[in-house]
């Protein structure tokens, strides 16, 4: 079955989404990530979406749901690398993903997590 890979870097889990993420794949990622958070006791999740050229309301909600779930499991989530056109489209849709941390790249995302978890 097709899956999105989850890598561990220190206390963080890094998820790089490089494909057009269809719904099933997004939901599978949510489940896999929940399990990995419990196994690894990671305190941060970096979701790299720089490979996504579209983000519709369903996928945006799944990402926000991943952030909420991770928080309940003791990890902060940072969404990384959102393309400007995607950000503008989300604003047009009225989806501002309030409460979700974002950063421009992995390095800044890691720095943000270190500050949050300090």
């Amino acid at each position: 079955m097709e899956r999105i890979a989850i890598a561990q870097i220190g206390d963080c889990l890094l998820v790089t989404i490089q494909v057009d993420m269809h719904d099933r794949l997004a939901l599978t990622l949510r489940e896999d990530l929940g399990q990995r958070l419990v196994q690894t006791q990671a305190t941060g999740v970096l979701l790299d979406i720089s490979g996504l050229d579209t983000l519709d309301t369903f996928i945006a909600r799944v990402l926000a749901g991943i952030a909420s779930m991770s928080k309940l499991l003791g990890a902060e989530t940072v969404i990384i690398g959102m393309r400007p056109a995607v950000a503008m489209t989300l604003v047009e849709l009225g989806l501002t993903l309030d409460g979700v941390n974002t950063a421009l790249d992995v390095e800044r995302g890691m720095a943000l997590l270190r500050r949050k978890n300090a």
Binding site: D53, T54, L55, D56, A85, V86, M88, T89, E92, L93
Partner: peptide, 15 residues
């Protein structure tokens, strides 16, 4: 931007 808007709208409607 026009492409992203159109593709996103299409995605919502197909869904």
């Amino acid at each position: 931007l026009a492409r992203t808007h159109l593709v996103t709208a299409a995605s919502e409607l197909a869904r």
